[in-house]
């Protein structure tokens, strides 16, 4: 059973979430400030981190956690908060949910980020190659010209989907379904953000945006 740490200062909400996620097959613990979240992060399979927390906010906690760990993190944000910053290189969250959210959505996103975790036992065998870019789906590693790329789990997933159809256009909805595990909605900017992170890491000429259609990894 995957172990989830929920960090939110709303104790009533965390109690309800523990109850709900418990029913969905997650083992949940709750902490109520950023310092505790950062201290305990290493013991869990995924984190749900609220931005507004006492002692240390979610942003500070996340950058602390990212210094030593790639544990999947889903940020809970107020609507209208700077999504670019949360998903961008600076923070490196795997996903975010604006509050208030549907807990079913949270459960789905938790499953999606957990699925994207590396599996240490897998071999290098099933390597995916696109030019000088190589992906090791089992280990969730990507190399560009032999140099390892620092990708979050979600970014790797997006890149893997694009690499499988390299040279072809992958529509936004299809990419969202395969990489993020959900339908694409016009209001959801996270796919755009993950792609623009990838473009920065790979170089802009490798990843094309086809306006109104989707994305393409250039062969």
């Amino acid at each position: 059973m995957p172990r989830i740490l929920i960090a939110d200062d709303d104790t009533e909400l965390t109690a309800l979430l523990q109850d709900y996620l418990g029913g969905q097959g997650f083992a949940c613990d709750a902490v109520h400030d950023g310092v505790a979240a950062q201290a305990q992060a290493a013991q869990y399979d995924a984190l749900v981190l609220d931005v507004m927390m006492p002692r240390q906010d979610g942003f500070a906690a996340l950058s602390g956690i990212r210094r030593s760990s790639t544990v999947p993190v889903i940020m809970l944000t107020a609507r209208g908060e700077d999504i670019d910053r949360i998903l961008g290189l600076e923070m490196g969250a795997d996903d975010y949910l604006p509050k208030p959210f549907n807990p079913r959505e949270l459960a789905a996103r938790l499953k999606a980020v957990l699925r994207r975790r590396p599996d240490p036992g897998s071999s290098d065998a099933e390597t995916l190659r696109v030019g000088d870019l190589s992906l090791l789906p089992g280990r969730r590693e990507a190399r560009l010209d032999g140099q390892p790329l620092e990708l979050t789990g979600t970014e790797f997933e997006v890149l893997a989907v694009l690499a499988e159809s390299a040279g072809m256009v992958v529509e936004r909805d299809a990419l969202s379904r395969q990489a993020l595990g959900r339908r694409w909605l016009p209001s959801d900017r996270s796919l755009d953000m993950h792609v623009s992170n990838l473009r920065r890491k790979l170089g802009p000429e490798r990843l094309k945006t086809l306006r109104g259609r989707g994305y393409q990894l250039v062969k």
């Binding site: 909400l13 979430l17 709900y20 509050k99 807990p103």
Partner: peptide
């Protein structure tokens, strides 16, 4: 407006629990 969000967030989770 901000404060209304907290009970709304709880309401959504409680609603889902009630559905379950």
């Amino acid at each position: 407006s901000h404060e209304l969000r907290s009970p709304l967030a709880r309401l959504e989770v409680a609603l889902e629990l009630a559905r379950e």
